[in-house]
């Protein structure tokens, strides 16, 4: 039933499966033609994706909690300008400091990614929540929605659209920052390592980037665009 609702017809299912398979087929063909090891390439991809996913989950959680704590009230007037300054701080400048503390480790990569991804998520949720209609909030007050009910019936759904938009922007910046970080700290495995190892071969680098873009495109098409559509639909009065 739900399946039938999500997918309009067989063609739709087919196209969806194509989007899932396409990047992997591409990498398979690519690795064969370029005489690279497909498992190794896939391993690099999975490792980098896992780093990004972990960093994203951390950033999303911290970003959401901070946003709902600070988006309004007396805290907001102090906190938001501070966050604004922090956000404009060039994150790559923090990288040497992080390396100093943790060396070229997973902690460095992940924490660096977190501070990159968190800002779009945080600010997107804040602007989303401050745009909520005043009479919605008055209804919440009149009908004494508190605690878990307040979360479930108001805060979570009200912040959904901002969360999704911020996630898309954050992950977009995150991919970039991930590969750059992996290259800068010379992480032994991951996409950064892959691109470093092939950087003398222009065509392999080009096709590598192409395959990588294909993967991002597929993920956006399959996951983020439907979520974006869904989250906005639920904001229409």
């Amino acid at each position: 039933m739900r399946f039938a609702k999500t997918y309009k017809n067989k063609l739709h299912v087919g196209i969806t499966l194509l989007f899932v398979a396409l990047p992997f087929v591409f990498f398979l063909v690519f690795s064969t033609v370029a005489h690279l090891s497909f498992p190794e390439l896939l391993g690099d991809l999975v490792l980098s994706s896992a780093r990004l996913l972990l960093a994203y989950l951390l950033a999303a959680t911290i970003g959401w909690v901070c946003a709902v704590l600070f988006y309004r009230g007396p805290l907001a007037t102090v906190a938001l300008p501070i966050f604004d300054v922090l956000q404009s701080f060039p994150t790559f400048a923090a990288l040497p400091i992080a390396v100093l503390f943790w060396g070229p480790s997973e902690t460095t990569i992940i924490s660096f990614l977190v501070i990159t991804i968190i800002w779009p998520i945080f600010f997107s949720i804040v602007s989303n929540l401050t745009m909520m209609r005043k009479d919605w909030q008055e209804a919440i007050t009149i009908y004494h929605l508190r605690g878990w009910n307040y979360l479930q019936y108001y805060l979570i759904p009200a912040s959904r659209a901002g969360f999704v938009t911020g996630s898309i922007v954050g992950l977009g910046e995150g991919w970039e920052a991930l590969i750059a970080t992996e290259i800068i700290v010379s992480a032994p495995h991951g996409l950064g390592a892959f691109f470093t190892s092939v950087n003398t071969n222009t065509s392999v680098t080009t096709f590598g980037i192409l395959g990588f873009l294909l993967l991002i495109f597929s993920v956006n098409k399959l996951i983020w665009l439907p979520l974006l559509h869904w989250s906005h639909k639920h904001l229409e009065g």
Binding site: R133, D135, I142, Y143, Y153, Y154
Partner: peptide, 27 residues
Amino acid sequence: GCAFVFQQFALLPWLTVFENVSLGLLS
């Protein structure tokens, strides 16, 4: 024990009619 009806309805768009009506009972 008071209730409020708003000029522009103030229904939460992400909740169904049933859920909207139940709001005041949750507390």
